[in-house]
Amino acid sequence: MTTMATKPHNEPAVYVYEAPLRLWHWINAFSIIVLCVTGYFIGSPLPTMSGEASDHYLMGYIRFVHFTAGYIFAIGFLFRIYWAFAGNEHARQLFMPPIFNREWWGGVWHETKWYFFLTKEPRKYIGHNPLAVLAMYILFVWIVLFMIVTGFALYGEGTGYDSWQYTLFSSWVIPLFGQSQDVHTWHHAVMWVMICFVMIHVYVAIREDIMSRQSLVSTMISGWRTFKDNRSVDDGH
């Protein structure tokens, strides 16, 4: 598969996102939406239910869904790390921005100008453009890691003192933040960073699908990157 991605540059289409990765992307997207919605209602619950407590389990269900989605989210992320090794070259891009490469920083600069309407044309990439890589690395990888670690630290409080979640996460995360309430607060606040990231991500994907020189949204569905012109790509090897 890896050989495929390094094929000549001006082919009409390149197979970039392999099936497992695409599946991860959409499951991940779905779990983030579920986590944000349920997370919000854990912090600010819905209006009170009347009647007997035994007739309802609303908060319980909301929390259950949150925890389930959390597990999917976390396991997905672990898989994603595994896929960085097992998958093709593009699968590694997310985790390793080539920050010591001057040329790559030039690409970041060019794309930044592109978004500020200071240049007429973006460059052409098989994988992510350098600015996207940088944004993903900071706003996605680390934020996800933060949410998983704090999330499991909070979850470990419920599973109890001798659970693996408590031992692996709660036991050091809670003292690090000061106390449990602080972990809650930051877990909640960073959710909004994630929401902001999703908004930008979706907008940029659609925009670039229309305005850049390669396909984006459809690529994450079919796996194939198609190009709108025949000039050579800028991230070729």
Partner: peptide
Amino acid sequence: RPHFDAGQFVE
């Protein structure tokens, strides 16, 4: 706690 799980709160 059962009231919490049920979503029954003092408003």
